[in-house]
Amino acid sequence: MSRKTNLIPYLLISPYVLFFLVFVAFPVLFSFFLTFHKWNIISPMEYSGIDNYERMFNDRLFWKSLRNTIWFLIIHIPLQIIFALGLAVFLNGKIKFKGLFRSVFFLPVIVSGVVVTIMWQQLYGFNSGVLNRLLVSIGLVRVGWLTNPDMAMPSIAIMATWKNVGLYIILFLVGLQAVPAHYYEAAEIDGASSWQKLRYITIPAINPTIFMVIILSTIGGFSLFIEPYVMTGGGPLNSSLSSVLYIYKQAFEFYHMGYAATLGFAFAFIILIIIIIQKKYIEKEY
């Protein structure tokens, strides 16, 4: 090969290398460096040792936002799997208008989270929201979907399930279609019930998809931002303060860059730990 042809691959990948250096490698290193400093961007940076870490361990709001996120995941992940898997199993049968149903369930996936949040904020309204009016009309009491501190995060979790379930239905459908039909035929000959077929054939076969849904939902939970930001501002009583919203507030409302970077590292670390645990647990389960 001539020298000229050897150079071309490097030219082709050079945009990636430049991007990696500027927007990945440098930020990771600089972020780590920032965790040992106090800085508001304008005045000079101050070395502060492990102050940021100490502060974080004693920061009620850090723990609160972490608890909120975990609470969100505890509600969101089972809901997501039940609805996505249930609807996928239904759609996998011989059903008319299959494509139409699929398209409808998928609609919220493509729409901006801002739009979804604005819509649901109105549906969740205490006095005039459609959900509460429906509850009242069937003789129940109003729910403080977004005004009750115990309900704010569950309400966001329900909305997030509604927004994403269409994507997971599609992923489950792909998984279901890969299950060999003769497994079911054999089970039917042995007289297995629908539930037994679901429990012993379908679920083990789509276990990788379930794992993927859990991972994606976990990452999604730790990325929650626009939903609490628009709907509740993190309230009431910080009950819907998400991890990213807390980083955002520390960085862009209080200009605590060093502390915000520390929070970023901590949450990233927690995400990775949770994913490793999930992976271990689920692989052992089946």
């Binding site: 990948i13 990636y16 290398v17 990696f20 500027v22 927007f23 990945v24 440098f26 930020p27 990771v28 600089f30 972020s31 920032l34 961007i41 990452i219 730790f222 990325s223 991890s243 990213v244 980083i247 960085a251 860059m257 915000a260 970077a261 929070l263 970023g264 590292f265 949450f267 990233a268 995400i271 990775l272």
Partner: peptide, 25 residues
């Protein structure tokens, strides 16, 4: 390079958010 791309994809954006903003500034 291939592994760098995989690594970057798994990197949570929470780490790079603040320093990337500073780069832009």
């Amino acid at each position: 390079i291939f592994y760098l791309i995989i690594f970057t994809m798994t990197l949570p954006f929470q780490i790079t958010l603040i320093p990337n903003y500073i780069t832009i500034v």
